[in-house]
Structures are given as C-alpha cells and as structure tokens.
Design a protein around this nucleic acid. Structure first.
Lengths: 211, 211
DNA sequence: AAAAATAAACTGGTCAGACCACTGAGAGAA
DNA sequence: TTCTCTCAGTGGTCTGACCAGTTTATTTTT
C-alpha cells in the first residue's frame, strides 16, 4: 500500500510516521473497535521499517488506550473515550493551581456554550423528552450534562467535554450539590429559549458568582 | 535504586512497569520541566531491562507530551501544563467526524468564551497595549485572535483554539474581510467591559446572523 | 468417523548487539 | 586566550534471536 513511512529527508522519527500511517490505514480500511490490525511483523514489512519501530508506535497508542494487544492473538482496535490517558496524565501532571483552574473554567464555559447551542438548534420535542427524563430518571451531574452536550449536537464539543469531565473528576474536588429542581429549572429556561436566564440558572447551579 | 521493574510472576508488560518506575523516579528526584532524565542505556541497566523496553516506555510518554527527546543530548521533562492530550486526540478525533460545521461552530464559540474571559480577568494596561498593537501593527485574523486567546489566560483554550485554527485553515473556506476598524471596535468594547456589546461586535465581525 | 492429543505456524514480549546521526565537552593547536 | 577537532555519550533504527502465549492443522487414538 503505502511503502514509505517518511519522505527521504524527513527528520521526523519513524515511529511518528508509523502512527500516522496507522491512522490513515485505520481510516482507509474503516477499522472499528474490536477489529484486528496487521501483525507487527507484517506492518514492519509493509512499511519497510524495523519491528522495534513499529512496536514503539503501537506501545504509544496502547498507552493512549487506542489499541489493545493480546499476546498470541494480535493487536486490536479499542473503543476509546479518553479514559486511559486522563488517568495516566493526572498521575504525572503537577496539580498546580492554574491547571486546575483552567480545567474548571474550560469545562464550565463549554457547558455554557452547549446550552447556548441547544437554544439555537434543539427541537421542541427533544427538549420535552429530555425534561421527562430529568424528572423521572436517576442520574449524576455527569449524566445530565452528557445529555446536554449531546443535545448540542457538536461532535467536537462532545469529545472535548468528555475528556474534561474525566479530568475534572480525577481532580477530586468537592462536589457541589445540585437538586433535581435546579436541573429542571435549567431545562425550563432552555425550552423557553431565554438566553440570559439560562446563563443565570447555570451559574447558580454551578455556584459561580456573577463574575 | 529500585532494581525490579516487575515482581517475579507479574504478567504486566515491562514497559508499563518502566512507566511507573519513571513516574516515581520523577517524583522522588523532584524532576521539573527542563530537567534531564537518565539516558536510555543507564535506565536499561539500572532497571535491569532491555533498552528497547525502555524506549517503548519513553516513546509512549513522549507521544503523551510528558517528555521530550533530543538526539545527542538526552531526554528531558517537558512543560506539560497545556495537556498534550487534546492535541493528540485531535488527530484521531478530527478525522472521525469531519464536520465542518462543528469546527466553525466550536472555533467561534471558543473565541467568544475567550472574549468573555478577558472581560473578567484582563488588566487594563494589557488591553491598552493590545489596542496599541492592533492599531499599529500588521496582522492576520489568526494573529489577532491568537492574542485574544492568549489574553484569556487559559492554557486549555489556547491549545484547543490552535488546533481548531489549523484545522479551520486547512478547510480552505472563503475568508471574510475584517477591517482594522472592526478589530479596534472589538477591543474598545473589551476595554469598556461591555458583555453584550462584545458579543454583538464579534458576531458582526464574523458575519454571523443573530441566531 | 469422531474425538483427543500433538505439532506447526502464527502472535506479541523481550533482549542483545550493532550501526548511524548528532551534541557537547575537553584536548590540542593557533 | 581562542579556535579547531576529536571523541565519548546520547537518541534513532534495524536485525536477529528467543520466549510465551494462541490458533490452526495434523496426527493419533478411541
């Protein structure tokens, strides 16, 4: 297929090239979670690189949680959702105050963005179904806002939010209590498409002062 | 120091053990960004494992953005405050649902978030310096908003925005013309800390209809 | 013929050793 | 002192070997 990992005078490391090749290979062949990747030896041959380089690439992807390897069987695509690395990173990253503040700030603002998007785009019946669920079901704050972010119908925000959520949870901050009434109130403001009210209710729910 | 990477009948892979060893090594020695780690050969010897295994661990950490390697020099701790993770996942995420609409939407909303953050946090003189620059210098839209996002003082947003910007540019959409006056007007509203005006001017600048 | 045991052919996991390309410090020359 | 230049050290890569599992094919036994 693609014989070269790197162009002739490319300085980038081989294993980086392999990661890229793998990515396009995954895309090209439409590999889905559970599917098997070519063996290390086959990749090594097909890409014209040493097996050790292939392994460096695979190990990196494995640590990221993107693939899974089973001795004697092979390497498989994995259903990844960012979990792996968040846990890993949190053990490494210095938990300096600014980082934590950035994570909180970003998560909150993206949630607010999603609320805004919902006001703009969501269908009436979607919101009504959401409301019904919120009143009846049992859920955590993450559950609730996952639905919010999903309703916002923006894949990018969804991905980013999930990562932030995981990281946020790993910080082990004090949880604020949110009552079912508050959630319901938020949904009401969404249904009424009242921008400023949404902001007010959300800030209140998150215990954020005006500023 | 610690001679064993894995306990005798531990099934976990060597490179995983090395990652853990490295972590405690970093913690124990109080290594900070910029500091050098032991060489691959030394680690190999100290931990009693093959160099290739050491490399698999290091490559994984490198892809995560936790360390940085320079040929001929060594391996160094990195300033990973901005969390490489977003960058990383983006290469996999952005391709899986290349929704152009999502990219635009996300970029714009994050820019708005940053404007809001500036209103909340930025110092007066920072804004005045920014204004001076905006009136005198030559710049592209990306230049201008890079400054915006930087002023917002949120590393996470900065990272995400840069990725989005690059991706956005690669989409090759029609560029909208923005006059220097519009940029200046935006800064004025920032200085006056007028939230609703900022939103209005920004939307106008981006040619966004109300909704 | 069916079932069980065995063998072969794969797969990932690891190691050792060999080069290469590059950097930096120290030895030596100017 | 200052400038080369050499050389030891470092990461980057490849090869080949062996181990330890899994799967498939083959042979043997029932």
């Amino acid at each position: 297929m693609i014989p070269y990992v790197n162009s002739p005078q490319n300085n980038t490391k081989v294993y980086i090239g392999i990661v890229k090749q793998l990515r396009s290979m995954i895309e090209h062949d439409g590999l889905k979670p559970g599917d098997r990747l070519p063996s290390e030896r086959e990749l090594s041959e097909r890409l014209g690189v040493g097996r050790s380089s292939v392994r460096e690439a695979l190990r990196a992807l494995e640590l990221l949680g993107l693939i899974e390897t089973r001795r004697g069987e092979g390497t498989f695509m994995r259903d990844f959702r960012g979990h792996q690395l968040v846990q890993l990173l949190s053990t490494f990253i210095l938990q300096d105050k600014k980082s934590i503040r950035d994570v909180k700030e970003t998560k909150f603002l993206i949630e607010l963005d999603c609320l805004w998007l919902i006001i703009q785009k969501a269908e009436e019946d979607q919101l009504l179904r959401f409301k019904k669920w919120a009143l009846e079901a049992d859920y955590t704050d993450d559950d609730f806002f996952l639905k919010i972010v999903t309703l916002a119908d923006n894949h990018l925000f969804l991905r980013i939010w999930i990562i932030l959520k995981d990281y946020y949870n790993s910080l082990d901050l004090e949880r604020m209590m949110v009552t079912k009434e508050q959630y319901a109130e938020l949904i009401e403001t969404l249904i009424s498409r009242n921008e400023s009210e949404v902001i007010r209710v959300y800030r209140n729910l998150r215990n954020l002062s005006k500023g």
